[in-house]
Computed example of a mutant assay.
Amino acid sequence: METRPAPEISYDAALAAFEWLIELGATDPVGDAPVNRYDLVTPEPAPAPPPQAETRAPRPAPVLAPVETVDPVAVARGLAARAATLDDLREAILGFDHCPLKRGARNTVFCDGNPKARVMLIGEAPGKDEDAQGKPFVGRAGQLLDRMLAAVGLDRAAPDPGTAVYITNVMPWRPPGNREPEPAEIAMMGPFLARHVELVDPDLIVLMGNTACAAALNSRGITRLRGSWTQAFGRPALPTLHPANLLRTPINKRLVWADLLELRAKLNAL
């Protein structure tokens, strides 16, 4: 585009134009020299960027070895399968370090009674007294259990397999605060319990409480299950209330008494 020079005007014309601007309010000059707005403005070149420091290539991220995950149920299954005797099974449980309950327990509670007994009782988990002594059912609930068994001619200390009982728990370690064992804890100890039943080889099993039913029957709801024979580990099994339940609710003793009479009748029929 061709730039034309501004036309020359006379003094009087310039003065008249200046007075007209003042009347319009343009009283504050912005520069000492007049500006021709028709001139093209040449943009100033952009400043050159500052020199960049020498950059190094980023270090490659370290390659982490994959974290090996352990399936505690598979470990327990392998250990239990290699146990040829009850002593082997006890040692296998003592060497099993994947159950968090073990770290807070004083003792591993394995069993009590006659391993040749026709009846195997399976409870839930040790309490305070059991954890201290390392035997199942030695506290108030255990003392009540002994009296109830004696009423139908059974005794954990009897040398005769026909009148003896063998006792164990689903969990060999006491849960903190006597809480119920969690499903994952029951599952990881399941292979040990199944092998325990195989080695003892009882004629009848008594499942005491919800945890025992969850481990042996994969079912809960002891008030619904109790009193009816079922199958657990390939053997006849009778669910019943845990003795601790009877200490809290004495009226339920009549229910367990009926279950013990059913157990006695089944033993007599075999």
Rank of each mutant, 00 (worst) to 15 (best):
M1E: 10
M1V: 10
R4G: 07
R4H: 14
A6S: 13
I9D: 11
I9S: 11
D12G: 09
A14E: 09
A14L: 14
A17Y: 09
F18E: 15
W20K: 15
E23V: 11
E23A: 14
L24Q: 15
D28N: 13
P34F: 14
N36S: 14
R37K: 11
R37T: 11
V41T: 13
V41M: 10
P45H: 12
P51D: 10
A53P: 13
E54H: 09
A57K: 14
A57V: 13
R59G: 13
R59V: 12
P60L: 14
A61E: 15
A61K: 12
V63S: 14
V67D: 12
V67A: 12
A80N: 05
A81I: 04
R82H: 09
A83C: 07
A83S: 08
A84H: 13
T85H: 09
T85S: 13
T85Y: 06
T85I: 08
T85L: 06
R90F: 08
E91P: 01
E91N: 10
A92H: 01
I93L: 11
F96R: 00
L101E: 00
L101F: 04
R103C: 04
G104C: 05
G104W: 00
T108Q: 09
V109A: 02
C111A: 15
D112C: 08
D112E: 13
G113S: 06
N114V: 05
A117K: 00
R118T: 05
R118D: 11
G123S: 05
D129T: 13
A132R: 11
G134V: 05
G134H: 03
L144R: 04
M148R: 09
M148S: 05
L149F: 14
A151W: 08
V152Y: 02
L154I: 06
D155W: 08
R156T: 06
A158R: 04
T163H: 11
A164R: 03
I167F: 05
I167L: 15
T168R: 02
M171W: 03
P172I: 02
P175L: 02
N178D: 15
R179N: 11
P181W: 02
E182N: 08
P183D: 07
A184C: 08
I186T: 05
G190K: 13
P191H: 03
P191G: 05
F192Q: 00
R195G: 01
V197K: 01
L199Y: 03
L199V: 03
V200S: 02
V200F: 02
D201E: 08
P202S: 05
I205V: 12
L207T: 01
M208C: 07
N210D: 15
T211F: 01
A212V: 04
A212C: 06
C213T: 05
C213L: 04
A214N: 06
A215T: 01
N218S: 12
S219F: 02
S219M: 10
R220C: 10
R220H: 04
T223F: 08
R224P: 02
L225S: 04
G227Y: 05
W229Q: 07
T230K: 07
F233G: 03
F233E: 05
R235G: 02
P236I: 04
A237M: 01
L238M: 03
T240Q: 00
T240R: 00
P243S: 07
N245C: 06
L246C: 06
L247P: 00
R248V: 07
P250K: 03
N252D: 11
V256F: 06
W257L: 09
A258D: 14
A258R: 14
L260N: 04
L263N: 01
K266R: 15
K266T: 08
K266P: 01
